[in-house]
Simulated scan of single mutants.
Amino acid sequence: MLSRSSTSRADPLSDVLTVLGARSGGRTRLEATGAWGLAFPERQRLKLVAVLRGACWMILPGEPARRLAEGDVFLIGSSTHAVASHPDIEPTDGAALYAEPGCDVVRLGGDDTIMIGGSITFASAEASFVLDALPRFLHIEKTSGSAAAVSRTLDLLDAEAGREHIGGSLVTTRLAEILFVEAIRAYVAEHGEACVGWIGALADRPIGESLRLMHGAVAHPWTVAALAARVGMSRSAFSARFARRVGKPPLDYLTSWRMLLARQLLSERETNLASVAREVGYLSQSAFGHAFKRTFGYSPKAEHR
């Protein structure tokens, strides 16, 4: 499981990934030559793929095909997709090729093109909290100004993948997790001002700071006015900017985050409802129960059984 940050400064991305139970789903490899194409179904996970050699095309429904070159990295959200040597190729079922236990390498005739992939899965049913904050397809080109850290991690991952040293599986899994985080950082650096969603909003100085404030003191009785004052903005300007960048008003976001955190606490701890309510900012157990039921459709007592 991706671990919670040990620093004193709040890190919303690490917080969310930890609460949602984000885990590396292991590593896959594809070697191919000639004409080939593989299709994959929609899944509630994030899939990260790096092109180590050659080139390929990524095809997503309703979007133009994208060519990916050696050194490029891409992240796919919850969407059906296909990868192929050419966009005109009719793809076959790629998921079936990796379906057998222990089958993490697929070879299609040669190795003109080599790709390695990994996935981030979520133990929580609320994976949409992350998936909705990212585009369906995130492309980080080798030539991108933000790609240096991604490239370094990719080089380490490629070198480790070809070794037979003890602990190799653990090392490659951790490197895949690091590559995922570096890809998110590159996305924020390149597109933060243009994207909607709390991950992109981290690149916005006042809005990113307000997110860190809420995550760093989730039980604090925050108001829009208090948050605005802390980041040096008027209440109205802050509220409008937050809603535009994050996609929902500040206190709606805070409630969503509190409820996700509360559900994790209820499912993992031997504790009472009142203490969980206080930990996420509710003095009234009744108010906490109503907020929880509005969010998830059932009472916190059902989660706590």
Rank of each mutant, 00 (worst) to 15 (best):
S3Y: 11
T7M: 08
R9Y: 09
A10G: 10
D11L: 12
V19F: 06
S24P: 02
R29W: 08
G34R: 06
A35L: 06
A50K: 02
R53W: 04
R53G: 03
C56Q: 04
W57L: 01
M58Q: 07
I59M: 10
P61W: 02
G62W: 05
R67K: 08
I76C: 01
G77N: 00
G77M: 01
T80I: 00
A82W: 05
I89G: 05
P91Q: 11
D93G: 10
G94A: 11
A96K: 14
L97K: 13
G102A: 13
C103E: 11
V105W: 03
D111W: 02
M115P: 01
G118Y: 02
A125Y: 01
A127P: 03
F129C: 03
V130A: 09
L131W: 11
A133S: 15
F137A: 15
G145F: 10
A147N: 05
V150L: 13
V150Y: 13
S151Y: 07
D158E: 14
E160Q: 15
E164Q: 13
A183F: 04
A183K: 00
A183V: 05
E190P: 07
G192Y: 06
A194R: 14
G197S: 04
I199R: 04
G200W: 06
I207Y: 08
M214T: 14
H215Y: 14
H215G: 13
G216S: 10
W222C: 07
W222H: 08
W222T: 08
A225L: 09
L227C: 03
V231H: 09
G232Q: 11
M233P: 10
M233W: 11
S236L: 14
A240E: 12
A243C: 06
W257C: 07
Q264K: 11
T271G: 01
T271N: 01
N272D: 15
L273S: 05
S275D: 15
V276W: 14
V276Y: 12
A277C: 09
A277Q: 13
G281W: 02
L283E: 06
L283G: 03
S284D: 04
S286Q: 09
F292R: 05
F292H: 12
G297P: 10
